[in-house]
Design a protein around this nucleic acid. Structure first.
Length: 166
DNA sequence: GCCAACGTTGGC
DNA sequence: GCCAACGTTGGC
């Protein structure tokens, strides 16, 4: 895949493990997106993702799941070092540096949305009915997002907070 | 290569 | 904590 059109992704992380605020505190606000252990996602990382692609930072498996902000892919794919690290939860004895099974990219924070976009709201937005993570049984930790979906979610996340009308 | 059993994901 | 859905494993 070498087309120059913009590509967008949605990347899930459990905020208890690694949240958008954790990313904001990293040096240069950059962190390796490691630990992907699914072959389909691995292949996307390796063959489709490109430096410069944008992605949503999605908080999953938490009280209010949803899109927290925007990150950028700032490296090419490289072998996931956690797969070789005996101390890591993501250690995989079947992967080795000579022939790595798993890959990762570095991501950089672009911005945290002024307004968190809950999953509930994604579901309630008809124009987003094609969004991959809304599909029944969808479990992939990284999924492609269309340009149209991208723009709609950016708009939702950029809206001013609703004024309280008490 | 089939498929049952098991493990994981992730919303609720 | 439950459970549906999916991926992986391993016996045959």
């Amino acid at each position: 895949m070498t087309s120059k059109t913009k590509q967008y992704w949605l990347m899930k992380s459990e905020p208890d493990e690694f949240s958008i605020d954790d990313l904001a505190q990293r040096k240069n606000q950059i962190e390796p997106w490691s630990g992907v252990r699914n072959f389909q996602v691995r292949t996307w990382i390796k063959n489709s993702m490109r430096k410069g692609d944008l992605a949503f930072f999605y908080h999953s498996s938490c009280k209010i799941p949803g899109v927290a902000g925007i990150i950028k892919i700032v490296s090419d794919a490289y072998p996931d070092p956690t797969a070789f690290d005996l101390q890591s939860d993501y250690y995989d004895p079947k992967s080795n540096p000579q022939k790595p099974t798993w890959y990762c990219v570095d991501v950089q924070l672009v911005k945290k949305f002024p307004r968190f976009v809950p999953l509930q709201e994604l579901r309630a937005t008809p124009a987003l009915h094609t969004l991959r993570i809304l599909e029944r049984g969808s479990r992939l930790s990284i999924t492609p997002v269309t340009e149209k979906e991208w723009e709609i979610i950016v708009e939702l996340g950029s809206r001013n907070q609703q004024m309280s009308i008490l």
